[in-house]
Amino acid sequence: MDDLTAADRALLADLRDAFQQLDPPPPHLLHAAHTSLDWMNADAILAELVADSAATGAPALRAAAPPRVLTFDAEGTTLVVEIVTVARVGEPAAGRRVIGQVLPAGDANVEIRTAYGAAVQVRADGHGRFRATEVPAGPLAFSCQFDDPTRTPFVTGWTTDQG
């Protein structure tokens, strides 16, 4: 037995309308959700974002944008990436440089995806280090496939764009 009055029902219906119209799941998030089956292959695991310099720093106090450092953990394998925005005259945020390292180190294929499909493929060397330039603006996601078949491949979720 529900105790809703007619006025309650009407207000709830209006509120539901307001949520649906003004705060539905954002299209870019829906897009990311739609593509996540394609992004994660069956044997990969999801690396968790454990630290984000954008979440803790105070970038507003600095004149130049500091590099953003993200740390992911995939069941004991750590991925650290530094994202540096390269600004050119007349072409702000023309591209970004991504420098990263996988630890424990190992030769691996690293893929950097940008939000709308473009992907940059790079190799991580014996020290687990990799580097990519001209990475377009927008959210990024990383995947890593080791040459060593006993090591579990992993992918990360999309970084949120925080300017």
Partner: peptide, 27 residues
């Protein structure tokens, strides 16, 4: 999205929680 919104996270975190949920499902 409703569950995420009910936690009243700032937008970037809400987006993170939403997409991570789907990646966890694939996993």
């Amino acid at each position: 999205w409703s569950v995420v919104r009910s936690h009243r996270l700032p937008d970037p975190d809400a987006g993170d929680a939403f997409q991570t949920t789907w990646l966890r499902l694939v996993e």
